[in-house]
Design a protein around this nucleic acid. Sequence first.
DNA 1: GGGCGACCCTAGACACTGTCAAGCCAAAGA
DNA 2: TCTTTGGCTTGACAGTGTCTAGGGTCGCCC
Lengths: 204, 204
Amino acid sequence: MTAVQKTAARSAESPRRALLDASLDLIEAEGLEGFSMREVARRAGVSHQAPYHHFPDRESILAAIVAEGFERLRADSLAAVEGESDPACRYHALGRAYVKFALSNPAHFKLMFRSELVREDKHEEAKACAQSAFDVLVGIVDDVAITRTGERDPALIFASWSMVHGLATLMLEGKLDKHFGASMDSRLAGADSVLKVLERVVKP
Amino acid sequence: MTAVQKTAARSAESPRRALLDASLDLIEAEGLEGFSMREVARRAGVSHQAPYHHFPDRESILAAIVAEGFERLRADSLAAVEGESDPACRYHALGRAYVKFALSNPAHFKLMFRSELVREDKHEEAKACAQSAFDVLVGIVDDVAITRTGERDPALIFASWSMVHGLATLMLEGKLDKHFGASMDSRLAGADSVLKVLERVVKP
DNA sequence: GGGCGACCCTAGACACTGTCAAGCCAAAGA
DNA sequence: TCTTTGGCTTGACAGTGTCTAGGGTCGCCC
């Protein structure tokens, strides 16, 4: 089954959906630099201009992909904490899910944080999805802070986000390979050890 | 004085230097997406092919810029901790310097961590400069850990790097503007408050 | 039935990009 | 004096995002 057939089978419904799926395939296969409107069209089996019927420009198709990314991240985060009831465990599970999401969808994750490629003030849907994903994080961090000290700790929210985001980013860029290796398992193990450092702040 | 003249005046010495300076001007003025070999040539006042006489390809000129970036980051880091003698103060000063460097040289900083644009295994100089900058961080984090517990704490190194790097990245991408504002001062104040969270780990 | 608009698509052009190939010219070394 | 080297130019090529201008096929309403 070719890539084109695969894409076609998965998204026979609407041409817009087919273009988005072709874009996702392309982006994970060739990376962000390999993305082009013309290659998307080629993979979707249409002319180079067809995508412009469904998206006004390149940035808009990328914005739609970003929105999907934040939706998936939100879903993954919720799924990861679902089984846990202890706030500290939920906190750890969330951090791990964030890193795992990034490692599993490297190009997609990078795109979600490239403001030159997708300016969120021009794309409300992407912005809203990003906010929803962020809200999940806020809830979980607040829980752990309130359980521990009885009050919210706004700085802890941004510290936590910065930590997991930096960790994911550095791993994706290969900056930590020398220390943690490049496989999914070894990287996740490394992430666990790093996340535990910040957890010292929220544990007795 | 035009941009071309400015570049020429600053780097009359060597054409290679002039090209690098033109690239830096361009990159900070137009961002990473605005960088092109032809525009660099235009700014340096030479033909579109001249840069290829000094750099084999686009990636190589970017690699040279990356190397300079890590050198500057290293120098800034050393300068920031120079006055301090208390390990905890040095630790905080380093984190602040990292964020300040990123905020002061946004496009340059982003480029330093874009492995698709510059693959470090192909560019030894960039790799070595990155390592030197990293070594400064290792020394300062080790100091604070040893002072506190008597032994090194490798996970703290990566936790610290992840935190400052994530913070810098999220700020550069505008993801924290809603909470910290977009000015240099308000962002640095926000960074201070976030960095203090991790410092709870290394303080009594 | 005939007209009409919405939807989906194509074809051709434009200016831009990175890079290859070929060659020009002055200074320097043998 | 001849040759090499360093620094540059011009011209081409295929690729890009996007503009303009059109074609075809539905379902719907008169």
